[in-house]
Every structure is written in structure tokens, then in C-alpha cells.
Simulated assay, not measured.
Amino acid sequence: MKESFADAQMEVARFHRALDAGRSQDIWKAADPDFRKATQPAQFGMLIDAVHRKLGKVRQSKQVGWNTNATTGGTFVSLTMQTTFEHGSGVEQFVYRKGDGGHMALVGYNIQSQDMMMN
């Protein structure tokens, strides 16, 4: 289980690097097929671009919660991150599915940020 959380944390760092570089489509392309079915690339791009435009680059991200769930659909790892950006902060929820070979793929992303709403 520790390995799964470490893998998910590395994926969060990869997500943040892509966010900072404005590469929302790279995030979408690397996401789990179920994520891509549920979210159109343009729609996801608008969300990620809004996070980047309104909050700026990631300055610090600290894990404040976690969960794991093993189902017939795979093993899911959820990380809740308290993230500080250039222009505010927010609580991000990442959900990853651990697939064959230990590969982690994004199946869910959510951000709650009053600073983003106000900017």
C-alpha cells in the first residue's frame, strides 16, 4: 500500500509540473480511459487553464488525506492535497487507478478554492 501512495504522490507532482507548464492536454492524454470518456479534452483544458490562470504556479503541496479502495474495477488511491499557489490556495482531490504493472492513471480531479472563485 505504501508503494501505491508513493506512486500516486509522484503522479500528483507530475500533474503539477504539467499544470505549471500549461500542458493540460498532456494530463488528459495520460489519464485513465474512464476519465477521458467522462471529460472532453476541451472541457478539461478550460478547467486546468482556469486553475493556472487564476491561481498561478504551484508553490507547495502537502498531503492532508488519503484513501485506498480495492474493487473488481481496480485499486483506487485518493490523495487530498492542501496546495499553495502563487495567487492563493486550494484543496485538491486526486483519484488514481492502479492498473497492470503498477501504472497509476488519473480517474478524478477536483479543486476547492475560494481564492480561485474570487480571482
Rank of each mutant, 00 (worst) to 15 (best):
V91H: 02
W66F: 12
A70V: 09
Q43I: 11
R59Q: 13
I48E: 02
F35S: 01
H52Q: 14
T83V: 15
T83I: 11
A50D: 06
F35R: 01
Y96W: 09
I48R: 01
F94D: 00
T68P: 02
A30F: 03
A38Y: 09
V64W: 04
V91F: 10
S89I: 13
L55N: 04
G90S: 10
V91G: 01
Q40P: 15
E92V: 13
M81R: 05
I48C: 07
G73V: 00
A31D: 01
G101Q: 08
H52T: 14
H87T: 08
S89Y: 09
V58C: 15
R97Y: 14
T83L: 03
F94K: 00
N67H: 13
S78C: 13
G45Q: 04
F35K: 01
Q93Y: 14
Q93F: 10
H52G: 02
R97M: 12
P33V: 11
T80D: 07
G45H: 06
A50P: 01
V91A: 05
E86I: 05
W66D: 10
Q82H: 10
L47M: 09
I48M: 13
Q82R: 11
N69C: 07
Q63W: 09
H52D: 02
V91E: 02
G88L: 01
F94Y: 10
P41L: 09
E86D: 07
D49E: 09
F76Y: 10
L79K: 02
R97A: 14
G101S: 12
E86V: 06
K62S: 12
L55S: 04
G90V: 07
V58K: 00
G73K: 13
K54E: 06
T72L: 04
M81H: 05
R59H: 11
S78P: 06
K98E: 03
Q82A: 15
Q82E: 06
G56Y: 02
Y96D: 13
S89H: 11
L55Y: 04
G99V: 15
G56R: 07
L47K: 03
Q82D: 11
G88E: 00
F44A: 13
F44T: 11
G56C: 09
D100S: 13
G90P: 12
D49H: 07
Y96F: 15
A70T: 06
Y96K: 05
G74M: 05
V51K: 05
